[in-house]
Design a protein around this nucleic acid. Structure first.
Lengths: 224, 224
DNA sequence: GTCTATAAACAGATAGAC
DNA sequence: GTCTATCTGTTTATAGAC
């Protein structure tokens, strides 16, 4: 009644409404889960009506897919340049530094502003089960990044980048970072933190980077 | 019509129905999520009717709480003896061995039989947001276990067990294990595994135990 | 305690005016 | 493209027979 005063001859396309719907859906899906979020809720948050979801996306499921596409695109835009194009030039020390930088950025994203956190949890939820969204995000974003991480780790540690050891090790690195988002409230309670701000993020970062160095050091010290 | 032939004078109490409902709800909540699971589904899986959920638990939410209580109880029964009562007797080497044993058991549980995996994911989901279930499981099961893990890690590494470093380090250890459950399908895809059986579990176990040793070694080698 | 039948609320999808 | 009003199916919860 007061929110939208757009007449029929508005001119500006419905691209804005579409974008608002995806943006709000992403936040709500992340915060409450896909099933627990109603289309009415999303429409209200986006300042539009329920019917517009069917119009723009064909239905709730289409909106979910649109969220996945947006996320995959953003992930590639951000990490694609920072991670995928990283070139250590065959130098183990530089490779290690690049892994540390990537981990640092990842932790900052996971624990940063609430909106980023909700997007992160949307991705985690969707990647935890097979489906359309999994098939959208895994091949275009996750797999290339994990492969690159393995390349850097392998170079840094002096191991075959595609060995079971390095591939699984890369998962343990990702996992410990993601846990701080999954277990957000557990961590806050146990650490007796009121909120997770810059100093807290820094503490998490330091611990994870310590683990990365220990991981690499343990392998460097062995054979090869 | 054919499933239940219990007359009025059956004698055996409804404790069985109650237990079946909790058991099936736990599996379904874990597999599909709380919101995505209908009470009809649960009742059918438990071989009873919808009304019995209201009778035994007051409603769907009561069933969720009952699941939490069962999980908290089982966690304490299993891990309570294996972990909480572990006494390294002040020996760092024994403390490290105990952490490794606990991690090994934890990974086995997380990746073991499907039923155990579903229970694990129920716990992870519920602990990821504040609520009644969080308040049930966190203080009675999670907090004591994390504290004990910190004690063992601190002793093994020669650090203050309640320092930020050790407490956060304990989270990174838990996180990397849990990731293999959260990211089950990602791992399978990337590792090109058809299923996660004993040899795959062993590989994950080896990587995580390697990380634990690296974590401890990095701190032992420093000061103190 | 267990069940069927049903009530009341809510979901996602759609028709049609503008 | 946007909206209101409505359709259709499903949800949880409940009443009441047995």
């Amino acid at each position: 009644m007061e929110k939208q005063a757009k007449g029929a001859g508005e001119g500006r396309a419905g691209e804005e409404t579409r974008a608002a719907l995806v943006a709000q859906a992403l936040i709500l899906f992340g915060a409450k889960g896909y099933e627990a979020t109603s289309t009415r809720e999303i429409a209200a948050a986006a300042g539009t009506n329920i019917a517009s979801i069917a119009y723009h996306f064909g239905g709730k499921e289409g909106l979910r897919v649109a969220c996945a596409e947006l996320v995959a695109q953003r992930l590639m835009a951000v990490a694609g340049k920072a991670v995928l194009m990283a070139d250590p030039g065959g130098d183990p020390a530089r490779a290690l530094a690049m892994v540390e930088m990537a981990a640092s950025a990842f932790v900052g994203f996971l624990l940063g502003q609430p909106q980023a956190r909700d997007i992160a949890i949307f991705v985690v939820r969707e990647l935890s089960r097979p489906g359309t969204v999994f098939e959208t995000i895994y091949p275009t974003a996750f797999e290339p990044m994990h492969r690159k991480l393995c390349a850097l780790l392998g170079l840094a540690a002096g191991c075959d980048p595609e060995s079971d050891d390095i591939r699984l090790g890369a998962f343990t690195l990702i996992g410990q970072a993601i846990y701080f988002r999954i277990g957000y409230f557990i961590v806050m309670r146990r650490m007796e933190w009121e909120e997770i701000g810059p100093p807290e993020i820094e503490a998490v970062r330091a611990t994870i980077i310590g683990n990365i160095r220990a991981f690499v050091a343990a392998r460097r010290g062995r054979e090869q």
